[in-house]
């Protein structure tokens, strides 16, 4: 049913913002189809820029990104929307429409495919509604389908956001700090959801995190960014204190971990 995950290739990608700030500097990476990659770095290191350049929410200014067999640079209009329809995105602040139902929010994952007149009238095809319900079942929150998004807790909202990406039947899921607004236990629920989706559906998953314990635990592959450059690329389990200190450019503090230090040491 779901097409297999797509590979993502960065070839000498640079991002310079209009105000002159450099977001990424000559980044070259190969992410295999079906891989789960965690990107770490301090805020401002370019994590968000890296993730958002993949679906062109942030346009890159040099190099080339290839998703599957599609070159991202220069994509506009329909072609860009088609690429984005194959890439789900999860945001730090959930980005749900709060005054409408959970089901309607998940159906937004189907907007690319839906005809405009149906969207205007709110008449979703039964097949899309079925797909949305299945997506909600996969993150175990289908009982809230007709509740308003604003009635949900933060963790529930983020699972709805994940269901919204699943409704796209995506080949890639990008998650930009998906647990930064959540408490520790809920963070693990959301990360496990992403891990399970990656394992069961073979969707390529790229996650930004800033807690190093989460990064090591969920990153089969860990990419460390510092000042817009890749400074580490390897298995999460191999990344020790030294590695993180080189990524962060300073010694570690209690703020860098999600769970209590007692559980780590």
């Amino acid at each position: 049913m779901t097409p297999a995950g797509a590979g993502i290739c960065f070839d000498g990608v640079g991002v310079t913002y209009p105000n002159g700030v450099v977001g990424l500097r000559d980044v070259s990476l190969d992410i295999e189809p079906g891989e789960m990659v965690v990107v770490v770095g301090l805020s401002g290191a370019g994590k968000s820029t890296l993730v958002r350049s993949i679906n062109s929410l942030v346009p890159f200014t040099s190099g080339e990104i290839t998703v599957g067999d599609v070159a991202v640079s220069g994509l506009r209009g329909k072609a860009l929307r088609r690429l984005r329809s194959e890439i789900g995105m999860v945001f730090q602040s959930f980005n749900l429409a709060r005054r409408t139902t959970v089901l309607n929010n998940v159906l937004m994952g189907r907007l690319y495919a839906a005809p405009t007149w149906r969207t205007m009238l709110g008449l979703w095809p039964a097949s899309d509604v079925e797909l949305a319900m299945q997506s909600l079942e996969r993150v175990e929150i289908v009982q809230k389908a007709y509740a308003n998004a604003s009635e949900l807790s933060g963790g529930q909202q983020q699972r709805v956001a994940i269901a919204r990406t699943l409704a796209q039947q995506p080949r890639v899921i990008l998650a930009d700090e998906p647990v930064a607004s959540l408490d520790p236990p809920t963070s693990h629920v959301v990360m496990r959801d992403l891990q399970r989706i990656n394992a069961e559906l073979g969707i390529t998953v790229v996650v930004n995190l800033h807690f190093l314990d989460l990064a090591r635990r969920y990153g089969n592959r860990l990419i460390g960014l510092r000042a817009g450059e890749v400074v580490y690329d390897g298995p999460g389990a191999d990344a020790d204190e030294k590695v993180f200190e080189s990524i962060y450019g300073r010694s570690l503090t209690a703020e860098d971990v999600l769970d209590t230090p007692a559980r780590l040491t």
Binding site: N55, R82, A97, G109
Partner: peptide, 21 residues
């Protein structure tokens, strides 16, 4: 936020405004 998510999922502006805004 909802609009940003809809646009990121490949929706056009009219459809994103209708369903998220």
């Amino acid at each position: 936020g909802g609009q940003e998510a809809a646009l990121a999922a490949g929706s056009g502006w009219i459809k994103a405004d209708r369903s998220a805004m």
